[in-house]
Design a protein around this nucleic acid. Structure first.
Lengths: 123, 123
DNA sequence: TTGACATGTTATATTTTTATAACATGATTG
DNA sequence: CAATCATGTTATAAAAATATAACATGTCAA
């Protein structure tokens, strides 16, 4: 599985609100599939299991089998890779954009000031 | 558009490798649609434009029209929201997991030490 | 050991996404 | 102003994701 495949799977798994909700549900501790289905009453159990398997393939969810129960654990480590490759660098970009905007605002401001000091002749 | 719709659109737009490649292409400055198509020769021009519109709907791409050209600018600001709601908190979780692992490793280590000091009788 | 229970598997219908084709428009340039 | 160029629009085919149904398996507990 290439690195691009990995990011495909990660972002795709985060792109559905039900799966994001599942992540929140197991964030503070593992839950059984049954417990998750109870919280997601609007969905068929099979649908929930499909979402779980999407999360598992992306590496965000790890399954521990205990008797007839399946405990779904969060593994947040892959999120680190997303942070390093995509979020961090682009967040930096966003900050630079804001700084550019500030600089632009100051330029405009001083332009206005100069115009007040030395009004241009009308054309 | 709800906040969930927004995250749906953001993660979905990041979940295709072609769109991530486009983001990288416009990261250091805007490019025309034509220039982007040149870099993505394996794809039909229409396909590229569809990807651009997905990015635009997610708010990651802003279009500036100049004559008959279309300049595609990156807007990285929405990435900030992703960072705040999804990456930051889950990265924290990941760090906690690593710390738990370390603690566990130390426990095991001292167990081993204790066992060496006071060997258990075989069963 | 038998019945209820939690989960797993396979198949399939529906919807959405991705890729392309064909045609259209409006700007630039000689 | 006519030809070319960059882009836009609409339609459609193909692939993938989502939701559900029907049936299967292994576990626990009385």
């Amino acid at each position: 599985m290439s690195i691009e495949d990995k990011f495909d799977a990660l972002f795709k798994s985060l792109s559905h609100r039900v799966r994001r909700r599942i992540l929140d549900l197991i964030k503070d501790g593992p839950k059984t599939t049954g417990a998750l289905c109870d919280k997601l009453k609007e969905l068929d159990r099979c649908t929930v299991m499909q979402h779980l398997s999407v999360l598992e393939k992306a590496g965000l969810l790890v399954v521990e089998r205990r008797g007839r129960e399946r405990w779904n654990h969060l593994d947040a480590l892959p999120i680190h890779d997303v942070q390093k490759r995509w979020i961090g660098p682009y967040a930096t970009q966003a900050v630079e954009m804001l700084q550019d905007l500030e600089a632009l605002a100051q330029t405009v401001e001083s332009d206005v000031q100069r115009t007040v000091d030395q009004p241009e002749r009308s054309k």
